[in-house]
Computed example of a mutant assay.
Amino acid sequence: MRVPLTRGEDGVLEPRLTLGAVTVRGALYGLVLLVLTVSWAFLTQEHDTRVDILAVGTFLGLIGGGVVLLCGLFFWLCSFGDVRRWRDIPSMRNQHDAVAVIGPAFARVGVLLLVPTPACYGLGELVASAPYGSWVYGRA
């Protein structure tokens, strides 16, 4: 059951975001990204292009997702429990409140990028080692 959001006395939506909720939503978005990446890779007929798409997905997911997730967790810790949603931007009173919005956003995007990484790596290895002429290999 969904808890209704209400504005607290400082103008921030209550209840506050939790790390678990941000991670779950980022993982769900990552599954959508995985479906799009795999669809794009297998709709492409050329073998080398398939391998390249999956290799780029692996690299960007691992490096980009790891860096963004670590930055998000760092900003989350710097906000000292004052974690806010994007809809809470009008309630900001000083420049330091921006960290409270960026932390959860970066954490969600980092998880989003990390979720498809193992599947992209595994499919990339599968496509690279597929026998010539198979549907997984594609056209030469």
Rank of each mutant, 00 (worst) to 15 (best):
M1A: 14
R2F: 06
V3A: 05
L5K: 13
T6F: 04
R7Y: 15
R7C: 03
E9I: 12
G11Y: 07
V12A: 07
L13I: 13
E14N: 09
R16L: 06
L17G: 12
T18R: 07
L19W: 11
L19F: 14
L19D: 07
G20A: 10
T23R: 12
R25L: 08
R25H: 08
A27K: 12
A27H: 12
L28E: 08
G30M: 03
L31M: 12
V32R: 00
V32D: 00
L33Q: 07
L33K: 03
L33C: 05
L34G: 12
V35Q: 05
L36M: 13
T37L: 15
V38N: 02
W40P: 00
W40E: 05
A41L: 05
A41R: 07
E46H: 11
E46W: 07
E46G: 04
T49E: 11
R50C: 10
I53R: 07
L54G: 10
A55H: 09
A55P: 01
V56S: 02
T58D: 06
F59Q: 05
F59A: 10
L60Y: 10
L60K: 04
G64M: 01
G65F: 02
G65P: 04
G65E: 01
G66P: 04
G66F: 00
V67H: 00
L69R: 01
L69A: 02
L70K: 02
C71S: 09
G72Y: 02
G72M: 04
L73Y: 02
W76M: 02
C78P: 00
G81N: 04
D82R: 15
D82F: 06
R84P: 05
R85L: 01
W86C: 00
D88Q: 03
D88C: 03
P90V: 01
M92V: 03
M92R: 13
N94M: 00
N94G: 13
Q95Y: 11
Q95H: 10
Q95A: 14
H96N: 12
D97V: 08
A98R: 13
V99A: 07
I102N: 04
P104F: 04
P104V: 09
A105H: 12
F106W: 11
F106E: 08
F106N: 10
A107M: 14
R108V: 08
R108T: 12
R108Q: 15
V109E: 06
L112R: 09
L113I: 00
L113W: 07
L114T: 03
L114W: 03
V115H: 05
P116S: 04
P116C: 03
P118Y: 12
A119P: 02
A119Y: 10
C120K: 07
Y121P: 00
Y121F: 15
G122M: 14
G124N: 08
E125H: 09
L126C: 08
A128E: 14
S129L: 05
S129Y: 04
A130P: 12
A130V: 13
A130Q: 08
P131I: 09
Y132S: 08
G133N: 09
G133H: 10
W135Q: 05
W135F: 11
V136I: 15
Y137L: 00
Y137A: 05
Y137F: 12
G138C: 02
A140H: 10
A140C: 04
